[in-house]
Every structure is written in C-alpha cells, then in structure tokens.
Design a protein around this nucleic acid. Structure first.
Length: 305
RNA sequence: GGUCAGGUAGCUCAGUCGGUAGAGCAGUGGACUGAAAAUCCACGUGUCGACGGUUCGAUUCCGCCCCUGACCA
C-alpha cells in the first residue's frame, strides 16, 4: 500500500465546514475531525459538533475521543488520525479531514518531530516555578539551555517557554535539536480545500452562531460539566466560550457581557485561523457561491486516481 | 430650577503645574513543532463638547452655552 488519498476541508470557525463536508461526504467518505475541542466529550454546543443524526449518517472519527479532564495534544491527534485513516481505507472509504485546528492539520500532514512524552511531575514543577519566578526568569533559563528556540520566542511567551524547558528537563536535549528530525504522518496524497467568506459576513455569522449556542443551552452545558466535576481549571475549559461561561457562573461577568465577550474572542480566533491557513500553500479556496466548483474539484480528484 | 461630577481614539478611561496627548479593549497585519478555541509579536492624529476671553500660544486657566450622570428641590 502506497499513498493513501485524502481530502482536507479547512477554514475559519463559522465558515460552514461541517455543512460542506456532510454535503460532500456522500457514500464515499468518512470524516476525521481535526478540532481540538470537539475531541472532548460533553463539550457539544460550545464546540459546534455536528448533530447526532449527522454523525449517524456519515461516520465521524475523533469526536468525543476523550474526557474533558485529559490534556489532548497534537501528538495524540497525529496518532489517532493515523489509525482512523487506516480504518477508513480498510473499510473501502476515503478519509476526509475536517477542522479548524491548524496545528493539528499541519502536524498530521507535515509531520511532528518525535519528542518523548513529558512526565507530569516535570510539568507541575515548572508550573510552580513559573508562579514563583515569573516568565522572564524562566525564559532566561531557557536561553541558557536552548538559545535557538528561546531566541525565536518572546520572553513573555509562557506557553512556549515552559514547553522548551520541559523538553530539556525531561530529555536533556534542547527542543530545537529535535526540529530537524521529522516523522511523516498523514497521507502524502491529499487535496486541501479551504472555505473562505468575506470578513464582514463571517463576523455576522459568528454573532449568529454564538447567539444560537446560547439559545440551545450553552450555559446549561457548562453547568452540567461542572456538576460532573469539570471545573474552569481544566485545559478543555480554557476553550472559547467555556472559559467565559465559567467566569459568568463564578459571578465575574454579567450574562450580556459574557455573550458579547464570546462573540469577540471567537472573531479574534477566526482571524488567527485565517492567518494560519493563509500561510498554507497548496490550499484551493472556495467561497460560498462556489459550491459547484468545489464539488467538481473533489469529484475530479477522486476519479483521477 | 439648584449643587456637584463629568464630556479626550470605535469603547472604557488616563494625562497635559499652558507649548495640540496615551493606556487597556476593539480593529488590522504577523508568528506558530505534543495546552493551539492556547500563547505571543507589531501597528495609536484624535475638531481633547461648542463659542468667546486672558495669553506669544488654550485641549489645559476664566466666562458662557450645550449634553450626560448623581444628589437636592
């Protein structure tokens, strides 16, 4: 078996990826969700998961993959997506990767360096040190052990500073020393399709989408998450909307402010996604009026074995 | 009607002991190797409410007017 064929649908939030992918799926595709929030069980409304009925119609992978208290990563995604691709092709179908998490998609198709997992105690120690010393001091330490990586990031970039340090402490090697060693993951033969929408229209769609989530009981969803013991400290609960509603439930914001805030941060996010995907060469972009051309492109690609 | 507090960037506000002003948020552009819906970087000229006065010079001081809020009637 050589290169597995695969279609990828990407684009900013609220652009309509779910609808388009379900339209295209027909009987020949099964969908792999490349979405860092839809992987979590119980995060349904706020993550914009496809409806149950839609998931019954077309088989979906990597939705509800883990409980909300685990920390799912890009590496996990690569492994899981790999297995899903194998399963789908084994069933005689074509995998369609659909999602807006650029890091997941790039990691899967361009590969991720093979860095060992980090023991949780190292992460905990780092978090304590961060609290005591502050980011800049931590970044100073990173500059001593990995000036290449440290020099590329801001001294205030908490996330990457900690990442650099945890890799060094766990493996004794600078993170940057792994960068040359890439392991290829995804299928080599993929058709990348980007969904685009005019900026102002996308912003309006986001407003309506957030309002729809609130109407469908987003707040209750977060309440029940809390009842199950999934509090605001969890990684999954830092996701857009969830973090804001936790704050609302803790009395930190009024409801109307919360809704406005969610709309705003969703728009911020859509912009970041467009920046990410914009860098991606080899993506064929389609607007909302070009669904026929899109369909035709996919059909031709499928037939052109 | 009176008193007090305000009217400064799209929004919330800071400031100028008189020399035409700057933060946060928003917005725009960008980065991105296992938390990525995360994390981070860059970009700040606007009749400083209107009109007069004082002054070499007023957004700043004075007068008057308009608007907003609170309180008193």
């Amino acid at each position: 078996m050589k290169r597995t064929r695969c279609v990828v649908i990407l684009g900013p939030t609220a652009v309509g990826k779910t609808g388009v992918s379900l339209d295209l799926a027909g009987g020949s595709f099964e969908i792999i969700s490349a979405d860092s929030v839809q992987v979590y069980r119980y995060l349904d409304i706020g993550s914009g998961k496809p409806e149950r009925s839609e998931r019954d119609r077309v088989r979906h992978y990597l939705i509800d993959r883990v409980e909300p208290d685990v920390s799912y990563t890009a590496g996990d995604f690569c492994r899981d997506a790999d297995a899903a691709v194998r399963e789908i092709t084994g069933r005689g179908k074509v995998p369609m990767v659909v999602g807006g998490t650029g890091l997941y998609i790039d990691s899967f198709f361009q590969g991720l360096s093979d860095i060992p997992g980090i023991p949780t105690d190292i992460r905990e120690i780092l978090r304590d040190e961060l609290r005591d010393r502050g980011v800049e001091s931590m970044h100073g330490e990173l500059m001593r052990v990995d000036p290449v990586f440290g020099g590329k990031i801001s001294p205030r970039d908490t996330q990457r500073t900690l990442r650099g340090l945890e890799v060094f402490r766990a493996t004794g090697r600078p993170l940057s020393s792994y960068f040359g060693e890439k392991r290829r993951h995804g299928p080599g033969d993929a058709l990348f399709i980007g969904l685009r929408e005019e900026r102002d229209i996308l912003r309006e769609r986001i407003d309506r989408r957030v309002e729809g989530m609130m109407a469908r009981g987003f707040v209750d969803e977060v309440r029940s998450l809390r009842r199950r013991g999934y509090g605001p400290g969890l990684k999954s609960m830092k996701s857009i909307g969830y973090a804001e509603i936790h704050r609302f439930l803790d009395g930190g914001m009024k409801l109307d402010e919360t809704v406005e805030r969610i709309k705003t941060v969703t728009k911020n996010y859509a912009k970041r996604q467009m920046t990410w995907f914009g860098k991606n060469s080899g993506v064929r972009w389609f607007g909302p009026a070009e669904s026929n051309a899109l369909r035709e492109t996919v059909r031709r690609w499928l037939d052109g074995k």
